[in-house]
Every structure is written in structure tokens, then in C-alpha cells.
Design a protein around this nucleic acid. Structure first.
Lengths: 213, 213
DNA sequence: TGGATAAGATACGCAACGTATCTTAGGGGT
DNA sequence: ACCCCTAAGATACGTTGCGTATCTTATCCA
């Protein structure tokens, strides 16, 4: 009953481990995420895990990657501000305190395992379904005439995610509605409007060649 | 020679400990910041520290607070973009990878010691010399006519710090010049311009009553 | 059918947290 | 001038969890 004595191998085992790791993460959070716990839950033992991942940070990131495909998210309420509010809320729910705790945890271990930083960074900065959702929302606003035609730089596409993440990490809790409203009204909406300003003609503000780069 | 056998007490001792803690932080970073190390460096022992601070996170925050007063920083180059580049660079240098590592570390321990989160959050969200510097830079740009008269919301004043911190935490390293240029050119400058847009008259963008709040 | 490969179990060394216990210095009241 | 009580300093301990080493045993494949 307990153990049908069948030994899982390769991909099958790996799936089981990653599932177990993900379950642990969601249940106890990164701070209490232990390799032993994952092993126990997956019905295997530590060495099996350490043969595949160098340390717990990599294991956690692997579990995260495994748990992906973000379902399409691009609210369409017919109004830019509402779209943004919904989008930020969705990002916030998706990113979740878990992810932020995990990011914080992983980063705090980065000194010991510098290679991990790269894994995390690429996970966070690549174009993602989230940045694409932002682009889509903006494009629709342009079509509606709420914004002038815009080219949104990647940095600006990332901004919502970055802001939400920052909030999670520094506050350690879910974003309240007022926070989301602030981020939209005081930061992101102005940002989008500013991107649409072609040339303020106030001098010194043009492309402003990157003489510092 | 080694120990003049004089026993420090109260405030004097506390100063010595906080100095030692700060020195440890800057030398080895939060990940390797140990209570034992601080005790040894301060020439005392662990229990003395644990009588004052509940855990290492609080000790680290106390050391940080002890180490404060940010010297005035508000570059004045005569040009908004240059001011911002300089300011972001300064913030980035000041915030430093140390602080971000520490923030990440502290947050990752927040699950075990939830009280600490509040300490950290207040440290990060209060108006600070940094947000005042941003306001000053903006005000000067307004005087110069580079921007229309503006009221910058607190959230927007915080944004530079938040963005820099986010970058540190997710990348785990110093911001390169290009990153700073991106943050200024693709995010913050557009944001400021957007705040200056009075009413685009494109509909649906006005104050947009916070029907979600 | 036999041997290489990898799974599973166990035990260890190590670092660091946080605590408990004890001794001893020195400040302050009388 | 004395004594006592508070807090400093030293030491040792229990605990957790990482990461590794060692050994046995199942399963795949040639």
C-alpha cells in the first residue's frame, strides 16, 4: 500500500519532485521550504534532489519554471484606466506574496551561489506574457484614441511588474486596492501619457543623446 | 593589553555593538552577517545582543538606522535629464547592493518574525532625504521651464528609489550606466512629462474617479 | 541474463540561530 | 565604606537545515 515498490526514474521522477517542490512552496513559503521536506513529499530522498539541482534556490526556481504557462491575461474593459487597474490587480495576484518571498529568499542566498542570480534575472527580465499583456492593453487604448500612437520601450513594459514586485518585497503583503490605484494613477498612467508627448519644445528634453552611456 | 577589564554598559555598549554590526554588514554583507561575528567584533557575547534585539534581522535594521543621516543630495546641473541621471546614480550608489541584499534578507526572514516587516516598511516608505531630493530636482526643472508646474504625488516621488531597489534586488548587482539611462529615459522622464499633462481631452482620462478604491 | 546506472536510505559534518546557566564587575543607595 | 542587585561576559547546549559521503538495491538495456 505504502510503497508499491516501483522505482520512478528520469522524467517521471523529476516531474514528481517538481510537483512536490511547488506544493511545498505554496504551502509553507520559501522561508520554510526545505530540501528534506520536498524529498519526503516526493517520496524520495535528498541525494536524489542534489543530483539534479545544486542547491535549494535552484530547486525552487526549477519548480517555479515548471509551474508556468501563464494563462492569457489582458483585461478589456473598454477604458484604459480600468484595464490598468485590472491588469495590476491580476499581476499582483499572480505574482503573489509567494513569488516575492521567493525572490527575496533566492536573492539573499545569491552571495553564496552567484550563478543563481543569473537564472533569476533572466526569469524576471525576459519579455513575458505579462509584458505582452501590458503592450496589448496599451495598443487597444491607442486604437480607442485614449493615447496617441506609442512605442512603449521594454523598460516601461516591465514597469508594472517591477513596481508590484517592489511593493511586495518591501511590504511583505498583498497590495491593497489603494496601492494599486496609486500605482496606476500616480505612476503608470502619467508614464504612458508622457511617452505620448512627442516634443514638449521646452528645450533640452528631446532624445537627449545618452552622453552618459 | 587585550582587555583593560573595564566593562562597558548601557548606551556606550550599545553604540559599540551597533558600530560593530554596521562594520560587519558592510564587510561581509547580510548573508554572512552573523550574531556571533558581531559579538566577537564588539568584544562581547551573544546573550548581550539577544537581550537587546530579538533576532538578527532586528539587529541589522538597528545598525542601519544607527548609521543614517543621508547627506544632502540634489545634483544641480542645469538640465533635468542630467539631474535625474546624476540623482539615480547617486541613489543607486547610496542604496547600494548592501542595502538591497539586506532588504531581501530581512524580508525572507519575515515569515518567522512578522513584526520585523513593519520596521522595514516604515524605513522604506517614509518621506526621506531621497524623496525630497527628487522633489527639489523637479521643482528646479519647473522653474527653468523644462516642465509645466507640477504636483508630484508621493508615490511618484518614491518611484526612483523603488525602481533602483527593484533592480538591485532582482539583479543582485550594481546598476550599469545603461540601466540608469533606461530608467530615466524610458520611465521617469516620461512619467514627469505625463504628470504635467493637464487634460489630453481624449476622453476617459480625466481624474477618473477611483471607482475601484 | 548480467552489468552499468541511478534510486533510495542513512548518517555525518558543519554552520548559525537562539537559549540557559553561571560567574563576576561595578553602580548606587544607605 | 559597604553591600547588593543589575547587567556584562563567558561557555555550553539543543535544534534546524544545508550539503555530502557511503552503501544497498531496483530497473533498464545490451
Amino acid at each position: 500500500m505504502s510503497e508499491p515498490k516501483s522505482r520512478r526514474r528520469g522524467a517521471e521522477l523529476e516531474q514528481a519532485i517538481l510537483d512536490a517542490a511547488w506544493a511545498e512552496l505554496t504551502e509553507v513559503g520559501y522561508a520554510r521550504f526545505t530540501v528534506e521536506g520536498v524529498a519526503a513529499r516526493a517520496g524520495t530522498s535528498k541525494p536524489v534532489l542534489y543530483r539534479r539541482w545544486k542547491n535549494r534556490a535552484e530547486l525552487a526556481l526549477a519548480a517555479w519554471n515548471h509551474r508556468v504557462p501563464v494563462t492569457g491575461i489582458a483585461p478589456d474593459t473598454g477604458d484604459l484606466r480600468s484595464d490598468l487597474l485590472a491588469l495590476f490587480a491580476k499581476i499582483s495576484r499572480r505574482t503573489g506574496s509567494l513569488m516575492s518571498e521567493m525572490i527575496a529568499g533566492v536573492m539573499s542566498e545569491t552571495f553564496r551561489h552567484p550563478e543563481v542570480a543569473e537564472l533569476l534575472r533572466s526569469r524576471l527580465t525576459q519579455p513575458s506574457p505579462l509584458t505582452e499583456a501590458v503592450r496589448l492593453v496599451v495598443d487597444r487604448a491607442v486604437e480607442r484614441g485614449e493615447l496617441p500612437p506609442l512605442e512603449v520601450p521594454h523598460r516601461a513594459l516591465r514597469a508594472p511588474l517591477d513596481l508590484v514586485r517592489n511593493e511586495y518585497i518591501t511590504c511583505g503583503q498583498s497590495l491593497g486596492d489603494e496601492t494599486i490605484a496609486e500605482l496606476v494613477d500616480d505612476v503608470y498612467l502619467p508614464l504612458l501619457r508622457g511617452l505620448g508627448v512627442v516634443d514638449p519644445g521646452t528645450g533640452g528634453l528631446g532624445a537627449g543623446g545618452p552622453d552618459t552611456a
